[in-house]
């Protein structure tokens, strides 16, 4: 990763955080908990940012429609988060593949 990528990444991240902070309190709470969970679960497409910014897009629509966050996604927030990454590979998958010696794109 070059310096440029890091700087770009930081700028984008700041813009993202600003969008989170502009959400109503209930949305912010739920967003932050989901983010924390997803970071721990570790789907591999998380770092490219589309998954997280997509959630904000979706939440902003919910706000515009005058809905509460649980009205939008249901009470089982964890189920919502799991469904988002259901068929994504996780860091753990990569790790397991590499110790079992299966081919990995990084080595091609």
């Amino acid at each position: 990763m070059g310096i440029q990528d890091i700087i770009e990444g930081k700028k984008q991240w700041r813009a993202h955080v600003a969008r989170v902070k502009a959400l109503p309190p209930d949305y912010q709470i739920v967003y932050k908990e989901i983010q924390k969970y997803l970071f721990k679960v570790g789907p591999i497409d998380l770092p490219d940012g589309n998954l997280l910014s997509g959630i904000i897009d979706f939440f902003e629509e919910g706000v515009a429609a005058g809905k509460g966050v649980l009205e939008l996604i249901g009470n089982d927030v964890a189920a919502f988060a799991d469904d988002l990454v259901k068929d994504s590979r996780t860091n753990a998958d990569i790790y397991q593949e590499s110790i079992s010696g299966k081919p990995n794109t990084a080595e091609k």
């Binding site: 497409d45 979706f58 809905k67 996604i73 249901g74 919502f80 469904d83 259901k86 994504s88």
Partner: peptide
Amino acid sequence: VEGTIYTILVRLER
């Protein structure tokens, strides 16, 4: 709820 449909749409797109 919308959230359920949202997760399905994300996956269809992916």
